[in-house]
Amino acid sequence: MSNQRIVNFTLNGEKSTAIVRGGETLVELLQNKFDLKGARESCGQGLCGCCTVLVNGSAVAGCLMLAWFVDGADVQTIEGLANGNNLDPVQEAFIEAGAFQCGFCTSGFILMTKKLLSEHPDPSDEEIRHYLIGNLCRCSAYPEIIEAVHLAAAKMRVLARA
Protein backbone atom coordinates (compact mmCIF):
# COMPACT_ATOMS: atom_id res chain seq x y z
CA MET A 1 0.00 0.00 0.00
CA SER A 2 1.45 3.31 -0.93
CA ASN A 3 -1.63 5.44 -0.28
CA GLN A 4 -1.37 5.17 3.47
CA ARG A 5 1.42 4.63 5.92
CA ILE A 6 2.39 4.82 9.58
CA VAL A 7 4.49 7.87 10.43
CA ASN A 8 6.66 7.97 13.54
CA PHE A 9 7.78 11.44 14.55
CA THR A 10 8.44 13.70 17.50
CA LEU A 11 5.57 16.09 18.22
CA ASN A 12 6.35 18.88 20.68
CA GLY A 13 8.99 16.68 22.29
CA GLU A 14 6.92 13.50 22.51
CA LYS A 15 7.26 10.38 20.39
CA SER A 16 4.13 10.14 18.26
CA THR A 17 2.65 7.76 15.74
CA ALA A 18 -0.18 8.13 13.27
CA ILE A 19 -1.62 6.51 10.19
CA VAL A 20 -1.71 9.04 7.34
CA ARG A 21 -3.25 8.98 3.87
CA GLY A 22 -1.30 9.96 0.77
CA GLY A 23 -2.99 13.31 0.23
CA GLU A 24 -3.24 14.35 3.88
CA THR A 25 -1.57 17.64 4.81
CA LEU A 26 0.37 18.26 8.00
CA VAL A 27 -2.32 20.68 9.22
CA GLU A 28 -5.01 18.02 8.71
CA LEU A 29 -2.91 15.51 10.64
CA LEU A 30 -2.34 17.88 13.57
CA GLN A 31 -5.97 19.02 13.72
CA ASN A 32 -7.76 15.73 13.17
CA LYS A 33 -5.52 13.17 14.86
CA PHE A 34 -3.84 15.20 17.61
CA ASP A 35 -6.50 17.84 18.31
CA LEU A 36 -3.91 20.59 17.86
CA LYS A 37 -5.82 23.53 16.38
CA GLY A 38 -3.14 26.22 16.57
CA ALA A 39 -1.85 25.67 13.04
CA ARG A 40 -4.82 26.28 10.77
CA GLU A 41 -5.43 26.47 7.08
CA SER A 42 -6.55 29.89 5.95
CA CYS A 43 -5.42 30.87 2.45
CA GLY A 44 -4.45 27.29 1.62
CA GLN A 45 -1.67 28.58 -0.65
CA GLY A 46 1.27 29.14 1.67
CA LEU A 47 0.82 32.92 1.57
CA CYS A 48 -0.79 33.82 4.91
CA GLY A 49 1.28 32.02 7.54
CA CYS A 50 -1.63 30.79 9.68
CA CYS A 51 -0.55 27.17 9.16
CA THR A 52 3.08 27.70 10.25
CA VAL A 53 4.69 24.61 11.80
CA LEU A 54 8.37 24.02 12.57
CA VAL A 55 9.67 20.81 10.99
CA ASN A 56 13.23 19.89 11.96
CA GLY A 57 13.61 23.48 13.10
CA SER A 58 12.53 25.03 9.78
CA ALA A 59 9.29 26.94 9.41
CA VAL A 60 7.03 25.36 6.80
CA ALA A 61 3.54 25.92 5.47
CA GLY A 62 1.61 23.07 7.10
CA CYS A 63 -1.15 23.36 4.47
CA LEU A 64 1.29 22.62 1.62
CA MET A 65 3.27 19.88 3.32
CA LEU A 66 2.18 16.28 3.04
CA ALA A 67 1.94 14.57 6.42
CA TRP A 68 3.54 11.53 4.79
CA PHE A 69 6.94 13.24 4.93
CA VAL A 70 7.03 13.96 8.68
CA ASP A 71 8.13 10.39 9.31
CA GLY A 72 11.30 10.65 11.40
CA ALA A 73 10.99 14.45 11.76
CA ASP A 74 10.90 16.72 14.77
CA VAL A 75 7.63 18.69 14.61
CA GLN A 76 6.94 21.72 16.79
CA THR A 77 3.65 23.59 16.96
CA ILE A 78 2.49 26.64 18.90
CA GLU A 79 1.05 24.30 21.54
CA GLY A 80 4.56 23.14 22.46
CA LEU A 81 5.94 26.62 23.03
CA ALA A 82 4.86 27.37 26.60
CA ASN A 83 6.50 25.53 29.48
CA GLY A 84 3.49 24.51 31.54
CA ASN A 85 1.86 27.74 32.63
CA ASN A 86 4.96 29.78 31.77
CA LEU A 87 4.51 31.42 28.41
CA ASP A 88 7.37 31.80 25.99
CA PRO A 89 8.81 35.34 25.94
CA VAL A 90 7.46 35.81 22.41
CA GLN A 91 3.96 34.85 23.56
CA GLU A 92 4.25 37.25 26.52
CA ALA A 93 5.42 40.02 24.21
CA PHE A 94 2.46 39.59 21.83
CA ILE A 95 0.03 39.83 24.77
CA GLU A 96 1.78 42.82 26.32
CA ALA A 97 1.94 44.70 23.02
CA GLY A 98 -1.67 43.82 22.19
CA ALA A 99 -0.41 42.45 18.89
CA PHE A 100 -3.67 40.86 17.77
CA GLN A 101 -7.39 41.38 17.73
CA CYS A 102 -9.09 38.14 16.68
CA GLY A 103 -5.96 36.03 17.18
CA PHE A 104 -6.45 33.77 14.18
CA CYS A 105 -3.03 34.58 12.68
CA THR A 106 -1.18 34.91 16.00
CA SER A 107 0.21 31.40 16.35
CA GLY A 108 1.84 31.71 12.94
CA PHE A 109 3.27 35.14 13.73
CA ILE A 110 4.68 33.86 17.03
CA LEU A 111 6.39 30.82 15.50
CA MET A 112 7.84 32.95 12.68
CA THR A 113 9.05 35.47 15.28
CA LYS A 114 10.81 32.64 17.16
CA LYS A 115 12.66 31.78 13.95
CA LEU A 116 13.37 35.43 13.13
CA LEU A 117 14.90 36.06 16.56
CA SER A 118 17.02 32.92 16.36
CA GLU A 119 18.56 34.33 13.16
CA HIS A 120 18.46 38.04 14.04
CA PRO A 121 18.44 38.58 17.82
CA ASP A 122 17.98 42.35 17.42
CA PRO A 123 16.10 42.86 14.14
CA SER A 124 15.39 46.24 12.57
CA ASP A 125 11.85 47.19 11.54
CA GLU A 126 12.89 46.46 7.97
CA GLU A 127 14.15 42.97 8.86
CA ILE A 128 10.94 42.25 10.76
CA ARG A 129 8.76 43.41 7.87
CA HIS A 130 10.79 41.36 5.43
CA TYR A 131 10.80 38.17 7.49
CA LEU A 132 7.08 38.36 8.25
CA ILE A 133 6.11 39.32 4.69
CA GLY A 134 4.29 36.01 4.29
CA ASN A 135 2.18 36.42 7.43
CA LEU A 136 -1.11 38.22 7.02
CA CYS A 137 -3.11 39.83 9.85
CA ARG A 138 -6.54 40.76 8.59
CA CYS A 139 -7.22 42.79 11.76
CA SER A 140 -4.15 44.76 10.65
CA ALA A 141 -2.34 44.73 13.99
CA TYR A 142 0.94 45.21 12.12
CA PRO A 143 2.30 48.17 14.17
CA GLU A 144 1.68 46.29 17.40
CA ILE A 145 3.19 43.12 15.93
CA ILE A 146 6.41 44.96 15.10
CA GLU A 147 6.40 46.38 18.63
CA ALA A 148 5.86 42.86 20.01
CA VAL A 149 8.84 41.50 18.06
CA HIS A 150 11.09 44.24 19.49
CA LEU A 151 9.71 43.55 22.96
CA ALA A 152 10.29 39.80 22.56
CA ALA A 153 13.85 40.45 21.38
CA ALA A 154 14.50 42.58 24.47
CA LYS A 155 13.00 39.92 26.76
CA MET A 156 15.15 37.23 25.20
CA ARG A 157 18.29 39.34 25.56
CA VAL A 158 17.55 39.79 29.27
CA LEU A 159 16.98 36.02 29.64
CA ALA A 160 20.21 35.28 27.77
CA ARG A 161 22.14 37.46 30.22
CA ALA A 162 20.52 35.89 33.30
Binding site: G46, G49, V60, A61, M65, M112, K115, G134
Partner: peptide
Protein backbone atom coordinates in the same frame (compact mmCIF):
# COMPACT_ATOMS: atom_id res chain seq x y z
CA UNK B 1 15.77 34.82 -3.26
CA UNK B 2 14.64 37.46 -0.81
CA UNK B 3 11.98 38.66 -3.25
CA UNK B 4 10.62 35.18 -3.73
CA UNK B 5 7.50 33.96 -1.85
CA UNK B 6 8.24 33.82 1.90
CA UNK B 7 10.63 32.00 4.27
CA UNK B 8 8.32 28.99 4.72
CA UNK B 9 7.97 28.33 0.99
CA UNK B 10 11.72 28.94 0.48
CA UNK B 11 12.46 26.31 3.16
CA UNK B 12 10.65 23.65 1.12
Amino acid sequence: MVTLANPRVRNV
